[in-house]
């Protein structure tokens, strides 16, 4: 049982999207760790064959099988739950689907050899999307001994530009199949994705393009009737500078003399020249901060819960992931 409510109580399938380069996989992994806090069992799924999870957790490439990759975020000296990971590829998902619903594993292998998967991904990506989302919804609903196997499933989903199509499986497939088993499967998957058990989170950085994509993506998913999740603002840099100093610097009114005096007091040589260089850096930084403030306001207007994650310098490692998980937990995301 949870010690307190989180913003996403009742959500079992967390879909994480974002523009390329914003840290979508990292945030999905951190969210999964945060969710496995206090003994929860969580499955982290990647669907694009990038093996990003294996790289993050420093383990060998993931097969099409649910493998334990880590221990969740702990609390008060107790260890967290288990974090499992799965790399879904359309081929594996197809075999799985045939096996699970029709007991047709062998026929599936024959189809795979004949290039059905290639065929489906080329001619009808909607079919391969429904196989991948189908695997995630199946895992989220899977039960053993009367209770759910996983407390939460986190999917590292395709980027913002493709997320609408990816999640709108029922409509994508209905264009191809008016009736029939695959249509029924798509409808089942769609019901789970549209239910309150699923939320779609967006990862962005405080830059213009990712923010524009986030706002466009939110509007698209809203129009599709999907439940919107949180906005995860990644790679935020705190600076410890006074607001007045930043404002002055953004307007080109940096007090160089004051900086020079400080540099001199700290025993640095050639304080004047150095101060001039540092003032340029401060000016660039201040203009950037001002831009980021405008972007924060744009995101706030979207009306979804927001979380801010610090930039992890020197590359993300397991320690960094736990740090991000802690931050998410403290902000109520998990």
């Amino acid at each position: 049982m949870r010690a307190r409510d989180t913003d996403w109580e009742g959500v079992r399938l967390h879909v994480v999207t974002g523009k390329g380069g914003t840290g979508k996989t990292t945030v999905a992994a951190a969210l999964a760790l945060a969710l496995s806090y206090n003994g929860g069992k969580v499955l982290l799924i990647e669907v694009e064959g990038r093996q990003g999870i294996a790289r993050l957790f420093d383990c060998p490439p993931l097969p099409y099988a649910e493998r334990k990759v880590g221990i969740g975020l702990g609390k008060d000296g107790r260890t967290g739950g288990d974090l499992y990971a799965l790399a879904v590829d359309p081929e594996g998902a197809l075999l799985d689907y045939l096996d699970m619903f029709y007991g047709l594993r062998h026929a599936g292998q024959a189809l795979t050899r004949l290039g059905l998967v290639d065929f489906a991904t080329t001619i009808a990506p909607g079919l391969s999307d429904v196989l991948r989302t189908g695997k995630a919804t199946e895992a989220a609903r899977r039960k053993a001994g009367g209770r759910e196997v996983y407390d939460a499933v986190v999917m590292d989903a395709p980027p913002t530009g493709r997320i609408g199509r990816f999640l709108n499986v029922s409509v994508e497939v209905s264009g191809l199949a008016k009736v029939g088993p695959v249509r029924n499967h798509a409808d089942t998957v769609a019901r789970v994705i549209r239910s309150p058990q699923t939320a779609v989170h967006f990862v962005t950085t405080l830059e213009e393009m990712p923010i524009q994509e986030t706002l466009d993506g939110l509007a698209e998913l809203r129009s599709l009737g999907l439940q919107l999740g949180g906005i995860f603002i990644n790679k935020v840099h705190p600076d410890g500078l006074a607001e007045a100093d930043l404002k002055a610097a953004a307007e080109g009114r940096t007090n160089e003399a004051e900086i020079a005096l400080g540099l001199k007091a700290a025993g640095l040589a050639d304080a004047q020249t150095l101060a001039a260089g540092l003032a340029i850096e401060l000016g660039e930084h201040a203009r950037n901060v001002a831009l980021q403030e405008r972007e924060r306001r744009e995101l706030a207007a979207a009306g979804q819960p927001r979380y801010e994650l610090p930039a992890i310098t020197d590359g993300i490692d397991l320690g960094g992931l736990y740090r991000l998980a802690e931050v998410l937990r403290n902000q109520g995301a998990a």
Partner: peptide
């Protein structure tokens, strides 16, 4: 506070 600006700018520079 007299040196706060200089210290802040130095930290910023270090990060850069």
């Amino acid at each position: 506070p007299r040196y706060a600006l200089a210290a802040g700018v130095l930290r910023l520079h270090a990060e850069r």
